[in-house]
Amino acid sequence: MTERKPPTLATCLLKWLGVSDANEPLVGDLTEEFQNGRSAAWYWRQTLSALRRYLGPHSVGALIGWAAQLAVVLTMRHYNPQSSWVALPVGAAILILLSPPLGRFTKRAAPRLRLRAVALDDFAYYLANYLMIASFLPMKVTTVLYCEVLWFIARQLALVFSCRPRHIAN
């Protein structure tokens, strides 16, 4: 039997954006059904449905988290007007790229222990933020810390009000 290849982009979206433990088995199920004759349109429908299902409940938290980050970056710019505006899109791109794998790593590292997972996630998240800030917005350490505290509070509020699991709300 000739093996058919499922739509690559749909599979990448599932693997990249999927934040659930069920992600790999779900992709496997979709692949199995596709090999058994389901169409590419069916595969895409299932993918979009799964993404909506998993990401939908977290979208409000994600938006709040992003708004908080934007506010903090603008605050930092206020403190350091010489900094480059390039930092904003570059920093956002870095966070977008880093967040899903960091979230998946922390979820795998402590799948059953929420507190440990959250602590690990927060550590990885703030390490990434710090690297971004240190790279693109050179300023006094105390100011960075001040902004990080603001950032932390905003993010935790966003998480408390909207998100489970925590690691995709940024």
Partner: peptide, 27 residues
Amino acid sequence: YGVPIAREIEQCAGREAALGSVYAALE
């Protein structure tokens, strides 16, 4: 696993069950 569960729902309830929804419910 997901595929037979989705098929069972489709056969008995006469409505398509998205695999993502099945996994979300199982979780």
